[in-house]
Design a protein around this nucleic acid. Structure first.
Lengths: 251, 251
DNA sequence: CTGGACGAAATCGTCGGACACTTTTACGAC
DNA sequence: GTCGTAAAAGTGTCCGACGATTTCGTCCAG
């Protein structure tokens, strides 16, 4: 399964050492104090991926991260283990942690897996959208996604997108969905393609959330599922149109 | 290779006996199979749940486990973190790790989430079942489930059941499914209800896997999905018939 | 000049101890 | 019996250490 050459992230990783320094400048671990240090580190790394500070294929050296994040190796390893379980980083025994890379098939597999879960989430949300307050909350989340899109703020766009799905699942009331849905993993390929896709594709994707929110607010589960289905069809079409160099080869 | 004197857990906490004949050939995609100590501990705890050595709600004290499993606290905490991400144990800050408990709603939520994933898995498996070899492998996995059922070997039954799903997903070829599907979490409630449900319910559940395997082998994706749907409907019916005391109250 | 053996550096996996903090429990006063 | 406090238990985090493995540079034979 591993490609012929050992990992050659020469294209992905910025060769300049000092370049990584500025990336960590903004990585101040800010989070709810209720979370453990490892959780905060994991959240920081995910934010780094969304913002582009970490790119797929990048090697995460323990000593570097512990120094820059100001935590111990144990806590960092807990965080890396957590991220590896979620599929965001891949651990190679004695060779370290790397930001996971998704090739075209992995992305399509991910979409194929995510779609029925999102359909279920939308279905449940439409069923449980009895109070206008929740419908309003969801539409506001969709508005925030589109707002971030207009501002060209990639990191916030991905964060708001995650928040939208979170709200959708929350309204549905199925706690297991929240645990299972691989939202963080989608951040990986979203962060990859966000800088490659055309403006029209970006626009199409951003508008999908408003449509889903409206369909859910109409309290028609079937319509909500159809909206999700259409959104995924659009995403698949976008991916089919992307050039091959958008996807790293190595896994 | 040579097991040092350290990583030798002299005996597990339960009368686990010598059921290590499984030697399942998983983990082929993750490259270096070298299971870390934390992974082995996590697997041991999951087996303990399947065998009944650990019961939902049980408090896992770090000092106890490190002594009994012969590992360090750091490795144990990694394992607990991993299990917590999978929903098998619940971590309470400063209060420790507990085997997760599933009330009736959680079980129904879990089934609701798992069903579309299993339908997708069956659908893909039916599509990709072009070689007879794979169909045979799946039917053999189903036969092993029923064999364990006849032998009243609960731990092996659950292990074979997991193996069946693993085979199903593997034939389908969607790698993301394997990561997302919350199989270990289902072991939790399976282990709970396995001792409570009636013989007829147990029989019904065990026969479902053979039906799914046959439907997949027929290479009819629709029929495979229907078989999964029916299997889940049966499980839901069984759960609706269970008394309330089958489900712990606290979460 | 090439290629393989050798060894040093880098990095990871695991362990044990240490201290701060929180929760739980035990105990004595009222 | 109730309440407050102190001890005990248990967890969260960090540090240092050692062994294992990979990686890479060096050196010598052909």
């Amino acid at each position: 399964m591993a490609t012929t050459a050992q990992d050659r992230p020469d294209r992905n990783i910025a060769p300049a050492d000092e370049d990584a320094g500025i990336a960590f400048a903004a990585l101040e671990t800010s989070g709810p104090d209720g979370a453990s240090a490892a959780d905060k580190v994991a959240e920081t790394i995910i934010r780094g991926i969304r913002s582009g500070a970490f790119v797929p294929g990048q090697h995460l050296v323990e000593h570097d991260l512990t120094r820059r994040l100001g935590i111990s190796r144990g806590s960092l390893r807990e965080a890396l283990k957590h991220l590896a379980a979620a599929g965001i980083v891949t651990l190679n025994r004695f060779r370290g942690a790397y930001i996971s890379t998704l090739d075209r098939k992995s992305v399509l597999d991910l979409l194929q897996t995510l779609e029925p879960l999102c359909r279920l989430a939308a279905h449940l949300a439409a069923q449980h959208c009895d109070s206008d307050e929740k419908a309003c909350e969801l539409q506001e989340a969709a508005a925030l996604v589109e707002e971030s899109h207009r501002q060209r703020n990639r990191a916030e766009y991905l964060e708001m997108r995650r928040q939208f799905y979170f709200t959708l699942v929350d309204i549905g009331g199925n706690r297991e969905l929240e645990r299972v849905m691989p939202l963080s993993r989608t951040d990986l390929f979203r962060a990859q393609i966000e800088v490659i896709q055309t403006e029209k594709q970006r626009q199409l994707h951003a508008s999908g959330y408003g449509k889903i929110a409206r369909a859910v607010a109409s309290r028609d589960p079937r319509a909500a599922e159809r909206a999700v289905q259409k959104h995924f069809a659009n995403t698949r079409k976008t991916i089919s149109e992307l050039p091959e160099h958008a996807f790293p080869s190595s896994v």
